[in-house]
Computed example of a mutant assay.
Amino acid sequence: NYTPRISGIMHVENGKFSYAMSILKSNNGNPDGCNRYTFAYETPAAGEARFIHTYMNDGNPLPSFEGEPELVDVVDDIDEYTKLLWESLNADNKVSLFVRYINIADGTYETRIVNKHQD
């Protein structure tokens, strides 16, 4: 499998924010080509988030994520939200998860990282 690479960035400034996400993946399983997709959200609504993952489902080879990142609701507790996200991932394919809550007003943040190889 040619595992897609996912990235994201948030811009937080003066009580406002925007963000962008991207995925780089092989050209339909062909390693001779690289497809790059970027999704920018300049005025996101409060309480909404986008979720992008590596694979669509199980298969051989594993099919890469397709389409725009999925719209999801945000739970207002980082530990509860981290648990919800982790438990929603496919048990056979999940490896790690990064979750960050940012207070847009003052820029403070909390981070959670889950790795299936660590308790």
Rank of each mutant, 00 (worst) to 15 (best):
P61E: 04
K25S: 11
R5K: 13
D73E: 15
Y109R: 10
P4N: 03
P4W: 06
T111L: 12
E68G: 02
Y81K: 07
N115R: 12
G33N: 11
S88N: 11
N115W: 10
K116Y: 10
V12I: 15
E70D: 07
M56L: 12
A20W: 02
S22T: 10
S7G: 14
A20E: 08
Y81T: 06
V74K: 04
D76T: 12
E48K: 14
T43A: 03
L62T: 07
I52Q: 05
M21A: 07
T38G: 04
V75D: 10
T43K: 15
S18T: 06
A46G: 03
H117G: 05
P63V: 04
D73N: 13
N93R: 14
G29W: 01
K25G: 08
S22Y: 01
K16C: 01
F98H: 06
Y19R: 03
T82Q: 02
D119V: 05
A46Y: 04
N103C: 06
G67P: 08
P44S: 08
D79W: 08
S64E: 13
G59P: 04
N57G: 08
Y81D: 10
E48C: 07
R50A: 05
V72Y: 01
G107T: 14
S22P: 05
N28Y: 10
T111D: 12
E87T: 11
S88P: 00
T108Y: 01
T111Q: 07
N27Y: 05
G67E: 05
N28W: 02
H53Q: 15
K94H: 06
S26M: 07
I78K: 07
R100D: 05
F39D: 08
A45P: 00
V95S: 12
D73S: 12
F39I: 09
F17Q: 03
N14S: 12
G67Y: 06
E13D: 14
V99R: 04
Q118V: 02
N60G: 01
W86S: 03
M56N: 11
L24W: 09
R5V: 11
T43F: 00
L71K: 15
N115D: 14
N30S: 13
D119G: 13
T38D: 08
A46M: 08
R100M: 15
Y19N: 03
G47H: 14
N28M: 04
A49L: 02
S22G: 14
R112F: 02
F51I: 13
V99T: 13
L97M: 03
E70V: 10
A46D: 15
V99I: 09
V12H: 00
I104N: 00
P44H: 01
Y41G: 03
Y55L: 07
Y101F: 14
Y109M: 11
T54E: 13
N14E: 10
Q118A: 08
A45Q: 13
E87V: 09
R50N: 12
E13M: 02
D79H: 12
N30D: 15
D58E: 07
Y2W: 10
M21N: 01
A91S: 13
N103P: 07
V99H: 05
T43G: 00
I104M: 02
R36S: 15
E80M: 03
S22F: 01
C34Y: 00
T111M: 06
N57T: 15
V12C: 05
G47Q: 13
R112L: 08
A91V: 12
